[in-house]
């Protein structure tokens, strides 16, 4: 008797669970509205968001903030924050000194150097090392972290973060070639203009592929071995950070390509030097990025005007390179 009662209870409970868990979708609740370009305004945020903007707020929030709970948590700004806003520092503080006596269009030159003890980088593939394609190790495959004797860091990307809306010169230059030779991508770091023909070659007797893994676009093609014509690709979309390129057949092979929609970008040479010329007049943000050190500068401000030469040496802590 009791058992039967229990069974009924369990049954009831089951029914309750299932009816409680019936799909929450009901056709009539699906409201679809037509939306053309909605304009999102954010003015309410400046007043409501102060509570979240405390200086010690570093950990990721456990719950997702919504507009609803925000208005309830809105408090008056903290005193030190008011102080922070009133003491506005001159925004040239982080700017490089401009050299006087220079004539010509604005120019941004500089050098990236490594500070501290440079770790010893071993070759990616030692000379004569046993590997499936022995010709790859006929010559050692050097480490791609290029540091000159006096500490200059090569293969660093220096580029304008966002192209100006107007006055960007059209690209009309040569196609750009990436070769794969001795199981190395040559060059290792390169800037391309969006729409610039981008020729992939393979001088080796074995297959290489090029897997370009951009954030905005991707491709993955094998490249004919020993080809002189190569395979022409066009990257149509700019990236915010250099995109990685790998060969899946040889795991040590890697390269970085940064497609940009403007000409104001450069890669440092083996001594760590770079030069960006013909800067338009105005105030521009530059990103300085290296594959190991990652961001060296997130937004370095450069104020350009005719007859200005901006010079700056950027330092990278050696410990960041050994990661």
């Amino acid at each position: 008797m009791f058992a039967r009662f229990q069974l009924q209870f369990v049954l009831l409970l089951t029914v309750a669970i299932f009816s409680g868990c019936t799909p929450q979708f009901r056709r009539e609740k699906t409201e679809v509205k037509s939306a053309s370009d909605v304009v999102i305004h954010f003015d309410d945020l400046s007043s409501s968001n102060n509570s979240e903007e405390t200086p010690d707020e570093a950990a990721t929030p456990a719950t997702t903030p919504t507009a609803g709970n925000e208005s309830t948590t809105a408090t008056t700004p903290k005193k030190e924050m008011v102080a922070a806003t009133t003491t506005s520092k001159p925004d040239v503080a982080k700017q490089a000194p401009t050299t006087t006596g220079y004539t010509g269009p604005a120019k941004f030159v500089g050098r990236v150097v490594v500070k501290g003890d440079v770790p010893l980088f071993s070759a990616l593939l030692a000379k004569g090392a046993a590997t499936k394609d022995m010709f790859c190790s006929e010559m050692a495959v050097p480490n791609e972290t290029v540091i000159s004797k006096d500490g200059g860091l090569g293969n660093v990307f220096v580029y304008m973060k966002k192209a100006p809306r107007k006055g960007v010169p059209e690209y009309s230059g040569e196609p750009f070639v990436v070769n794969q030779k001795g199981c190395i991508f040559i060059p290792h770091a390169q800037i391309v203009r969006v729409g610039q023909p981008f020729i992939l070659k393979n001088s080796d007797p074995v297959a290489h592929n090029v897997r370009y893994n951009g954030f905005a676009s991707q491709f993955n093609d094998t490249v004919v071995s020993g080809s002189t014509d190569g395979l022409t690709k066009v990257i149509e979309f700019p990236e915010r950070l250099p995109a990685g390129m790998v060969c899946d057949f040889h795991n040590w092979m890697s390269a970085y390509v940064l497609p940009v929609d403007h000409p104001w970008a450069a890669v440092t040479d083996a001594d760590g030097n770079f030069e960006i010329t013909n800067l338009p007049e105005g105030k521009w943000d530059f990103v300085i990025w290296h594959e190991k050190a990652l961001y060296i500068e997130r937004s370095f401000k450069v104020t350009a005007a005719p007859n200005t030469l901006i010079e700056k040496v950027f330092e990278v802590n050696a410990s960041k390179l050994s990661q």
Binding site: Q24, F25, K29, T30, E31, V32, K33, A35, V38, I40, F42, L45, N49, E52, E53, E57, P61, T64, P65, T66, A67, E70
Partner: peptide, 22 residues
């Protein structure tokens, strides 16, 4: 958090939620 709110607002405006789609 303020950037999270913006992402939410953009997605909500252009796509809505599963029960109130745009």
């Amino acid at each position: 958090p303020y950037a999270q709110i913006y992402v939410d607002q953009v997605l909500d405006n252009y796509f809505g939620s599963p029960s109130d789609m745009v």
